[in-house]
């Protein structure tokens, strides 16, 4: 029964992990850069959602509209004004330079949040807090259940957007070969901006999904950044399905090993799995065999 409950918990956690990883995966997949501030951006979103919920009595799931738009617009501007510039000027060092830039931006976000909100942990009490649904002998906390469902729906929407819409196709084309798509008349810089905006917007969405049940401090970002990176690498970069499978997989590993052995053991195992995947199949477990230069 313990194991079954752990599996359920793992799936509920994995759903939210998927949208988190999707945010990173799209940015990495499209521009081949790593956004090291994934977690910090998420935390900024969490505080926005927290304020909306506590000060304006908003339903946590309505805050998605705000976090999604605010962070999305911010991501667009950041890419347009800064990251595009770095990519252009850095040449072969674009990857490391953008990583360091976003790491610096992450420090800035964390310290600003610390100055505004202090170091203590806060959590939003919503109408969903503390309620849970009994499924046979198992318990599913209501906020986690709703968040997981929304996460899965959102991931599906992103999948269809990326694969069926004209814009999504253009973004994917840019990720495959930037120069050729430019010859086809696609504005690759704009695609970068849109890709980064989607990535930030998804982090905003994830923040709203976490706010009903996750205690917030300015420092939780780093662990989320790591989670996202691990999931993306395990699932396959720039691969929407990969983010879902990777998210579910890591969620399950954490919860099952956590309940059977210990949480710290689960964390070590997650990192070990990550290194093994990196060494054996760096293109990700879910990706098709493609030869990449």
């Amino acid at each position: 029964m313990l194991v079954l409950q752990a599996i359920l918990d793992g799936i509920l956690l994995g759903g939210v992990y998927s949208t988190l990883a999707l945010g990173l995966s799209i940015a990495y997949g499209v521009m081949h850069i790593i956004n090291w501030s994934t977690g910090q951006t998420l935390v900024a979103g969490l505080y926005i959602a927290y304020i909306l919920v506590t000060k304006h009595n908003m339903d946590p799931y309505v805050t998605i509209l705000f976090t999604f738009t605010i962070l999305g617009a911010f991501g667009f501007l950041m890419q347009k004004t800064m990251i595009n510039r770095i990519i252009e000027r850095s040449g072969y060092r674009a990857g490391p330079n953008v990583l360091l830039f976003t790491a610096g931006y992450g420090y800035v976000v964390t310290s600003i949040l610390e100055m505004i909100f202090g170091t203590l942990s806060v959590s939003a009490t919503t109408r969903y807090t503390g309620k849970s649904l009994a499924i046979g002998p198992l318990y599913a906390p209501v906020p986690k259940l709703i968040s997981c469902i929304i996460a899965v729906v959102a991931t599906a929407i992103v999948y269809f957007f990326m694969h069926k819409s004209e814009l999504g196709r253009a973004i994917r084309a840019t990720s495959q070969d930037r120069n050729t798509t430019r010859l086809m008349g696609i504005n690759s810089k704009l695609m970068y901006c849109i890709g980064f905006a989607i990535s930030f917007a998804l982090l905003g969405l994830t923040a709203s999904l976490l706010v009903p049940y996750y205690p917030i401090t300015p420092y939780i970002g780093t662990s989320f950044s790591f989670k996202a990176l691990i999931i993306v690498v395990i699932g396959g970069v720039g691969n929407v399905k990969g983010a879902i499978y990777g998210g579910m997989f890591i969620g399950l590993v954490e919860k099952i090993l956590g309940s059977l052995v210990s949480d710290s053991f689960a964390q070590v195992m997650v990192f070990c799995l990550f290194i093994i995947v990196l060494l054996v199949k760096p293109e990700g477990l879910m990706s098709k065999r493609t030869s990449k230069a």
């Binding site: 800064m82 510039r85 770095i86 000027r89 850095s90 060092r93 330079n97 953008v98 360091l100 830039f101 790491a103 610096g104 931006y105 992450g106 420090y107 800035v108 976000v109 964390t110 310290s111 600003i112 610390e114 100055m115």
Partner: peptide
């Protein structure tokens, strides 16, 4: 109370260097 200031400067330095002096 302003311990965050030091990491703010640190982060800003990182951003500015990457932007203007890669």
């Amino acid at each position: 109370e302003l311990a965050a200031l030091s990491s703010l400067i640190y982060g800003l330095a990182l951003c500015l260097v990457m932007l203007f002096m890669p």
